[in-house]
Nucleic acid binder design. Structure first.
Lengths: 349, 349
DNA sequence: TAGAATAGATAAAACCTTTTACCGAATCGA
DNA sequence: TCGATTCGGTAAAAGGTTTTATCTATTCTA
């Protein structure tokens, strides 16, 4: 089939014996200046021709693209990740409700080197930008100027003064520590994610704050990097229990690592929670279905995404100037944590 | 900071004492008609002013948006899904390599009712569209006209003649059946996903084809809907073994349900694979980390996504007219399947 | 040296809207 | 009946590119 030419507002004007302006006024119902008769004639022609205004021409004229950008880091498979998935769902939905569409970009080295993140604004790709999975290494975030609406989602960048919406990770750390201590655990291991992530630091700070208060400080030998992955979590758990066999509980910085940790512990013959309790952070969907179901800190990721998107729109329409929000978190108890001392008595079998 | 006005090609022309045309010609290096001196003068001005052409104006002029659309169905949390995540990663990457950006849309009822899927083309949002997670109920796919580049990714729609790229699910079904039969299983249960998905039908057809050949046909009482979710898989597995306690193996239509099935089996005191073998389909990342690691059919999802995107670009540039591709699949053996008869002897404890 | 060919640059049209400023006709008040 | 409103509608500009057709020097050919 031949590529039929798109019908433009001119065609409608001709078809309805009206001027361009009249058609435009009718379509955007600008004040009631057009007579009922003319209006109907125009609408008729629109219907007959199946006319739809070109958003390219509209955007060029209005100088607004109608797009919001989502910038995600280049991870192994960035989108095959429940955490990002949840945020993207929330953003997509909120944007849609406000007649915005979203553009998905991945900030890989080549991308940044060519300043594609700046092109996003300079070349009018987007009206605003949401940055996901940001770390303190992401210095390119400092490139954005004040008049470009950018919000960092569920993170902050230390040293760079950007708008953000995040969960209360310090509180999450405190809650995890309290929960484990209340169950009687004294020797607690910690599996952290990439240390260049600001929220990781927050989480640990909160965690250690409580441990310190209870005179159960966390020695460096009981902390291990789990790389924010399942495999990393498994290896970290094994390393921790090999080095310090008397550990009875582990706090993992996210559910992925926690699930990996459980898997790792099983590999070395440990039972969860009988021998070792494990608590995660995030409360991903999967946390309910692993074995045993994971006790974790619920972080309102979806809400953070939706809120960030809503506030970005406020930023764009100048309804807001500055955005700094922190959302509350809560404990979700399942089966992966139990009172200390139920299982083996202090030694790896 | 005040919103400073964007610099346009006019500014560059003025700054470099050349005409609009000259600047444009230099920037797009159209034939070598411009003298070296002028060229340098223009480039200098571009640099000095930090000029970047507006993609809105360019698109309006060229009648190409430079965007590819991804249309996903409205699932609970569409993007928080490894399957879609993998496809989206692949598409995003391939698109990026070809200087295309991607737009993410969710086909919810409201969206379709308002024909937003058609607006995508009519209003010049995208140059081409990739449809994910399509089912036979998605009749709106018939709305697209021949001159609109649309590819259905990893699915087909029976009755609608659309381009597609998919994995060989019939073969996947055959492989699963052969594997279980070779291990000596005679009573095999089947957990299927939504029956309105064409690939589900393919999978079952292949599966039953082999079972029939071996004179081990699948009675309806040994098939159960697992809703393509973990929870559904768990419930389906429990239902199957309650109804037919002598089942020794289960084939689940995807890994999510397989993982759910394992979880469900454990709940009713069954060991995997000792009492019941479980095989999935997809080979998601997580399959390696569940307990026990899941035997499954590897489907090259990433490759399918990348290929679909590449072919869509061919469609757009008229390098291709029709797209019909089927990618091969393979068996990945892990720990969730074992020879029949290792465990209990035919009865639920 | 006239006429043709070529190099270098540009004016203007086209892409499709929205919006501003303006115009003519009808209505109204005095 | 004149001047002021109001009503219904339109021409033209603006938004930022690319491309086509055109124009002016300059160089070449005969």
């Amino acid at each position: 089939m031949a590529k039929r030419k798109a019908v433009s507002i001119k065609d409608v004007a001709r078809e309805s014996n009206a001027s361009l302006t009249t058609v435009s006024l009718v379509l955007n119902n600008r004040d009631g200046r057009i007579s009922r008769a003319t209006r109907e004639r125009v609408l008729d022609a629109v219907e007959r021709l199946g006319y739809r205004p070109s958003r390219l021409a509209q955007s060029l004229q209005s100088q607004r693209s109608g797009f919001l950008g989502i910038l995600v880091p280049q991870l192994r498979h960035a989108f095959a990740d429940v955490y990002f998935g949840e945020l993207i769902s929330a953003i997509q939905e909120t944007a849609g409700e406000n007649d915005y569409k979203i553009i998905l970009d991945v900030a890989n080295p080549r991308y940044l080197e060519r300043s594609h993140h700046l092109e996003l604004f300079r070349r009018h790709y987007v009206d605003g930008l949401l940055c996901l999975g940001v770390t303190n290494n992401d210095t390119y975030l400092a490139d954005f100027s004040e008049d470009q609406p950018v919000i960092v989602v569920n993170n902050r960048v230390s040293g760079v003064d950007l708008d953000f919406v995040q969960c209360d990770y310090s509180e999450a750390g405190r809650i995890a520590a309290k929960h484990l201590c209340e169950l009687g655990h004294k020797k607690i291991g910690y599996i952290h994610g990439a240390t260049e992530v600001q929220t990781t630091a927050d989480l640990r700070d909160g965690f250690e704050e409580v441990l310190d208060q209870l005179k159960l400080p966390l020695p460096e030998s009981r902390a291990e990097d789990g790389l924010y992955t399942e495999e990393g979590g498994a290896k970290a758990a094994i390393a921790l229990l090999t080095r310090e066999p008397t550990i009875t509980a582990i706090f993992a910085g996210n559910d992925k690592m926690a699930i990996g940790a459980i898997s790792g512990l099983k590999r070395i013959g440990m039972r969860v929670p009988d021998d070792v309790s494990v608590i995660g952070c995030d409360d991903v969907h999967q946390a309910e279905y692993c074995d045993p179901p994971l006790t974790t800190i619920h972080t309102p990721i979806y809400e953070v995404g939706a809120r960030a998107c809503g506030l970005l729109l406020d930023l764009i329409s100048s309804k807001a100037q500055v955005v700094r929000e922190t959302q509350p978190v809560s404990l979700t108890v399942r089966k992966s944590t139990a009172a200390s001392g139920k299982g083996r008595n202090g030694a790896v079998k």
